[in-house]
Design a protein around this nucleic acid. Structure first.
Lengths: 253, 253
DNA sequence: GTCAGTCCGTGGTCTGACCACTGTAAATGG
DNA sequence: CCATTTACAGTGGTCAGACCACGGACTGAC
């Protein structure tokens, strides 16, 4: 009952005076939204669909193509068009598009990341299952094992933080986090490449993650968020300091 | 220099074996991303573009239509295709699409809202300008004046919270907040309609907003976030209590 | 000077055909 | 009888050319 109401949101801004392609587009979008078309379903052939909807094939193709570009359809040559499971990658692309003209995107996205994670860990303190915690513990080990490798280390770091968001059991937080991930990943691995040799940084890294994890195990939201914030803060300071040092004596390059 | 690097993110997943429409699509998307095409620019006529890019007009139209559906282009009959300023509405639609199949979206989006706002107000404590604070003060007045009207009151409430996010001076937080706004707005006005007659709720509303504002003026991030969290928490409790009461005696309907 | 009508450029749509890819089922060979 | 190969039917991909509908600008009459 509640789910259906959500559909009105998008419909509201579509007046009835739109062209054929747009009409077909909204037609299918609403079918997808309402669940009338589920992931994996196969659409009719283009020629039949065009006939059924009373539009020409080019018009129908424009609509289908748009849906495909949005990631809602998977059109495969010689096979047909299939409904695709909702994917956060579109979200990520849209976000990148929106933020592209802005300056200092990377630092800015970091703020969004902090926002999501801090709320996620609070929820995780309430909702995290035993399996979530075990997964987190495993990732902590992976993190320690891959300190020497900037590539694996970065991935392990990301995996740990992602697991926190997953443990929040909030699909909205999760989707948004996935959406900013592409942007996030950039600064993540880059930073890692610059700093993985610094003992002060790597030691902090392990301690900070462990501290966050322990607070989570103890189900203490305030402590968990506080430690997470501290982790971000110190990481940021170390990074700036490191950049400053390298700038003064870039001989190590 | 840094901005350009962002472009690689999307390009990475596009192999070179794609069809004509997809090729044209990525062609324009990258032009938009790189700033080669700015908002307001007018594209060549379809026939000329098709000729220039070596594809037929239907293929070109499929690509342009897809860009239009993504909100990147504004195609107007009889006038031409114009580059549109990046808009968060697409983000909102994409988010709605992604979250549609999930249960309890409304409550879940609220978590995202709390996440964004709590981080935003922290940043706002550092970055908010005098004008931001004055705008916030004005909205506080509007809020008080419109307590009696569920419609205006809801809008004023939303405007106040939006202004907080704007004061954070973070375009990423702002875009994400705008993206979840359509979903947010629903529960917002609905809740307001159910609760605006309750003195306990309206009085809390004013006090809470004022307290948040004062902490912001004093540039105290911890206090500001704490009070904001409290505001959300109490609001949630009051709402649940109210729903419970109405459920027990729905005569007032 | 103002207003009406005309004209041209634009997107919007259609038709019908042909090409390229895919899976399957029939034909072939062992 | 089974495995391999081949032919076919169905699907999306592309194209060309034509016509319609809309918007703005120019031109003419008033």
């Amino acid at each position: 009952m509640e789910d259906l109401a959500v559909l009105d949101i998008l419909r509201s801004e579509d007046d009835e005076t739109q062209g054929g392609a747009a009409r077909v587009f909204t037609f299918f979008r609403d079918k997808l939204l309402s669940g009338e078309l589920k992931a994996g379903d196969r659409l009719l052939a283009e020629r039949e669909l065009a006939l059924a909807l009373g539009v020409s094939r080019p018009v129908l193709r424009e609509a289908l193509r748009s849906l495909a570009m949005l990631g809602l359809l998977d059109i495969r040559h010689g096979r047909g068009a299939f409904v695709r499971a909702a994917d956060a990658s579109v979200l990520g692309q849209a976000l990148t598009l929106c933020l592209a003209p802005e300056p200092n995107i990377l630092d800015d996205v970091l703020q969004a990341r902090i926002a999501i994670e801090c709320q996620a860990i609070r929820l995780a303190c309430e909702r995290a299952s035993e399996r979530d915690l075990q997964a987190l513990a495993g990732m902590l080990d992976t993190l320690v094992d891959s300190l020497h490798d900037p590539e694996k280390g970065g991935q392990a770091d990301y995996a740990f933080h992602l697991a926190i968001v997953r443990a929040s059991d909030s699909s909205a937080l999760m989707k948004i986090y996935e959406a900013i991930s592409p942007l996030l990943m950039r600064s993540h691995v880059e930073r890692r490449r610059d700093t993985f040799r610094e003992p002060a940084i790597t030691s902090h890294l392990v301690d900070a993650h462990r501290a966050v994890f322990l607070s989570l195990v103890q189900r203490d939201p305030d402590a968990a968020e506080s430690r997470l914030r501290q982790h971000f803060k110190i990481g940021d300071e170390l990074r700036r300091k490191n950049l400053f040092t390298n700038y003064q004596s870039p001989a190590s390059n």
